[in-house]
């Protein structure tokens, strides 16, 4: 309980039912000391609790600091149920892993879990909006490989490692090989948008794989090429990556469709579909403006040739 400070106090006051509190505490402990006697990496590394805004080094001292191999970026908004387990798996990916939790608009006690886990914590009082947390986390990350995951989805470290290993072997952007349910005549417009953008950019082989879906990993070079801010609009980031000639690959299928808990509240407040379609159009617009289509377009008088009888 002594870990609780600051804005998290409010969440504590709200929580009145004892069983719920017990459960939360247990998950916080598990997050803080993963693996128990096995001596998980989180136990060995010094806790690097940093509040936003943070410095890039952000560690206890220059002697203790060395660049992490992997930065795992986890945007968090009221995800206390799974956050502890998600952070624990993140630390297992690599012995030298930095976990960055970007708390935005979280009021449920997720902050205490994140702080207790030893992760770097960036706190925003209000929700940042879809995907912005990833961009914010990426800007603060120091690792050679950046892995993006969600706080509500517990994916075993062994599976996540496929993405970071792909980056270590030379891939710039390692995507979840997830195209959504598409063996049907009519698909969701979000699935359609992803397929269409990849096709337009000359990569129909990527099918519906997209930076809109987690998990995905990117190299530091890729981050430098596309810019952290572009990550807030994932199709734009993907378009910039392909335009820069980076190596973009589908590396492993993680069925986020079934892992993702039903977003009943979100569905009530409005579907994400218009946002994601707009993102794809923004990406197409950027691509056209930056002359990405120059090599592919035979504009002009397509209708004009061979007109006359």
């Amino acid at each position: 309980m002594r870990h609780r400070t600051g804005s998290d106090r409010f969440a504590r006051l709200k929580r009145v039912r004892t069983p719920v509190r017990r459960k939360r505490i247990r998950s916080a402990r598990r997050g803080g000391a993963p693996g128990g006697t096995r001596g998980a990496p989180a136990m060995r590394r010094p806790p690097t609790v940093v509040r936003a805004p943070t410095s890039r080094t952000g560690a206890d001292g220059e002697d203790a600091w060395r660049a992490p191999a992997v930065s795992v970026i986890i945007p968090v908004m009221n995800e206390k149920r799974t956050l502890g387990r998600v952070i624990r798996e993140a630390y297992r990916i690599h012995p030298n892993t930095e976990v960055i939790c970007v708390l935005n608009g979280s009021t449920d006690g997720s902050l205490a879990i994140a702080r207790a886990s030893g992760a770097r914590v960036l706190v925003y009082d209000r929700p940042l909006g879809h995907d912005v947390g990833r961009a914010v986390g990426a800007r603060a990350a120091s690792g050679d490989t950046l892995l993006f995951i969600d706080a509500d989805m517990v994916i075993p470290a062994a599976r996540l490692r496929t993405f970071t290993s792909a980056i270590e072997r030379g891939t710039d952007i390692a995507l979840n090989d997830y195209s959504g349910p598409r063996k049907r005549p009519v698909v969701h417009n979000v699935i359609l948008a992803k397929h269409a953008l990849n096709a337009l950019l000359g990569r129909p082989d990527l099918e519906g794989a997209s930076m809109t879906a987690v998990p995905h990993a990117i190299s530091r070079q890729a981050l430098a090429a596309i810019g952290a801010e572009a990550l807030a609009v994932p199709p734009l980031a993907m378009t910039k990556a392909l335009h820069a000639g980076l190596s973009v690959r589908r590396v492993r299928h993680i069925d986020v469709g079934t892992l993702n808990r039903p977003r009943t509240k979100r569905e009530r407040s409005g579907s994400l579909e218009p946002l994601i379609i707009g993102d794809h159009l923004e990406a197409i617009g950027w691509w056209l403006k930056s002359d990405g289509a120059a090599g592919q377009s035979p504009p002009g008088n397509v209708a004009g040739r061979g007109d006359g009888p």
Binding site: Y124, H130, R139, P274, L275, D279, G285
Partner: peptide, 25 residues
């Protein structure tokens, strides 16, 4: 797309009203 994106806004009326883009500059 070049035709219609030059005539209308960059998102063709699919707005992004929820993101705090200024948080990342």
């Amino acid at each position: 797309w070049r035709d219609c994106l030059s005539m209308r806004d960059a998102r063709l009326g699919f707005p992004d009203s929820k993101r705090n883009r200024q948080a990342i500059g």
